[in-house]
Design a protein around this nucleic acid. Structure first.
Lengths: 236, 236
DNA sequence: AGTGGATTTTGATATAAGTCAAGCTTTCCA
DNA sequence: TGGAAAGCTTGACTTATATCAAAATCCACT
């Protein structure tokens, strides 16, 4: 179950430097009296919010991973984005309008819940927040455009290789291992492929030594080799 | 060739009500002395700007249609967005950074060219512009998410039907006709399909009476019928 | 009006990826 | 600890869509 972990205190927040509040001074934060964030926990698979539901809160991800997905009337669904520490989400509709997608944790997560109306006020008052949000939108839009190219112009192996390579370039440890807490089904939903196709490619690459995996953790080898093999003249 | 049509005068601009300057009063516009927009024309197929090129200007489309596309190193390319009257584009990088995509007119167009640094200043000064840009980003991001679902979770016929239906709901005349100045190849690049696939579906639907076409203009019939036929239980 | 080039259509064929089905592993918890 | 559920792998088969190729049509320009 989701559970309230307590009232938020931005001043002492461990991930503030990753959030839209990164550029605020302590004084500025202290002076905000009408702001009421709350730290909330969710288990993997719970629903943080559901598409078509009125949006009253935005969220900042404190730790764990969240997927944003859209479900079609016929049951098919597609993951439109995977969120990481510090990401802002749920601010894709205007206050009171419906969320455009569903947000579900892929691990245990902790989020900071921000009432939308308060966030909008804050944004108006503090140009730093404004600016920080604008930058996020731009980056975010770039990523969306890149993803459209992946989906529209690349084939299965290319999409999967480029996803795994990108993923393994973030947060990998000294030995090159990265957590990959996505099921094959989820990778499929993200890349527009079936579970079987994802599984086949990954098995093949493990056999060929491009990929190691143990308990939800992976390590990539000879990335350039893999690229040369899978991606026709620079398609990924 | 592209050609300068003259210095812009926001006050008298015919599409200002569609632009990011829609909510400004005449007085506010008049008071902006340091702003130097220019009206520029381009022919179909010219390059307005090229991906990887430093971004110094943003643009507002005055009339005609522009495609934003990304080209992969291997020559494949994908259209990530089609722009209409009033749309702002080229503001996807920060001043001086590279554009993330290439902008090419699909018809003769006229654009208003806005120096990025000036636009950024203006945005800082006038909350109306700020607000208007934020709304555009949100809408835009929604559209991008929707498009990812199209590409990732739907098949050829579903994508094409939903594209044609959406398209024909904008700017159609009293008799239901809409201009469609995209070649089959461009529709394919937008939807992740080949020319042949696009052509086959459209021919079939013409035969079946769902679609009429003459000289770059189309008209849809019995949309609900088509949907029922093509889209498995509500997939489009 | 007539010719040449581009675009579109149509057909035949190939193939990547989906579907269906069965076994195999891992994980979870009773 | 063991047994069920969930997730993953593998195989055989089907199919949607790409690819290749050739007509047919449309359009632009003398």
């Amino acid at each position: 179950m989701s559970h309230l972990q307590g009232r938020g205190h931005c001043q002492s927040c461990g991930i503030r430097h990753l959030s839209i509040f990164a550029d605020l001074g302590a004084a500025q934060l202290g002076s905000i009296s009408a702001f009421h964030p709350a730290v909330v926990g969710y288990d993997s698979g719970e629903v943080i919010y559901h598409q078509q539901t009125p949006s009253n809160n935005a969220f900042t991800l404190r730790h764990g991973l969240v997927k944003l997905l859209k479900v079609l009337p016929n049951g098919r669904s597609h993951i439109v984005r995977v969120l990481r520490r510090g990401d802002l989400f749920g601010f894709d509709g205007f206050a009171g309008e419906a969320y455009n997608h569903t947000a579900i944790p892929m691990t245990e997560v902790e989020v900071c819940r921000l009432p939308l109306t308060e966030l909008l006020d804050l944004k108006k008052q503090l140009p730093e927040i404004e600016q920080s949000m604008m930058i996020r939108w731009i980056v975010h839009l770039r990523e969306a455009e890149d993803m459209m190219v992946e989906l529209g112009a690349k084939k299965a192996g290319e999409r999967l290789a480029s996803f795994l390579i990108r993923w393994s370039n973030v947060d990998r440890d000294a030995a090159g291992w990265v957590e990959l807490p996505l099921s094959r089904a989820e990778i499929g939903e993200l890349l527009g492929l079936t579970v079987e196709t994802v599984s086949r490619f990954m098995s093949e690459w493990k056999r060929q030594g491009f990929l190691q995996e143990q308990r939800g953790t992976i390590r990539m080898h000879q990335v350039d080799e893999l690229r040369r093999l899978v991606c026709a003249s620079g398609s990924c």
